[in-house]
Nucleic acid binder design. Structure first.
Lengths: 68, 68
DNA sequence: GTCATATGTAAAGTTCACCTTACAAATTTA
DNA sequence: TAAATTTGTAAGGTGAACTTTACATATGAC
């Protein structure tokens, strides 16, 4: 699943560390999310969406529908 | 985090097993979600929201904001 | 060219989302 | 009331989300 975290973070000139602090996770978690290494939990997805002022559906790309 | 899964499932007269099949998880997962034993993953949250024809934000209750 | 800041990578550990199996209890239906 | 369906509970297992620590590289300021 893709997400727009890096795109939105850079647009707002926020560092990975600042975002990590705001979402109360480690910088590693931000890096892994941005690089697509794994998916956010629902809780983290919600916090991130709130941080950027958009909905979860707007922040994450559920394209194609990964369910058969 | 609360959710409206049980409420919506019953309103549609869908069994736990039918919902589990539709979301491609086990009935145990549905039971655990409905009983608040744990939170859905983002992927499962999305599938469930799609199943009920609503958004993730409408299906899950992020009240109070579980982040300090 | 050095210092600070920002980003990336790697490894090992913890927690939890989800699974499998099995059985018990409640509810519906005949 | 017996049978079938639905729901609940319990226990142990796997993988992934997230952590901690450490180091390496890139970028920009001075």
């Amino acid at each position: 699943m893709q997400n727009r975290i890096q795109e939105l973070r850079k647009a707002r000139k926020v560092t990975q560390q600042e975002l990590a602090d705001a979402l109360r996770v480690t910088r590693q978690t931000i890096i892994s999310l941005e690089s697509g290494k794994y998916n956010a939990s629902l809780t983290l997805a919600h916090k991130a969406a709130q941080f950027f002022g958009i909905t979860i559906e707007e922040l994450f790309v559920f394209e194609g529908d990964e369910n058969l």
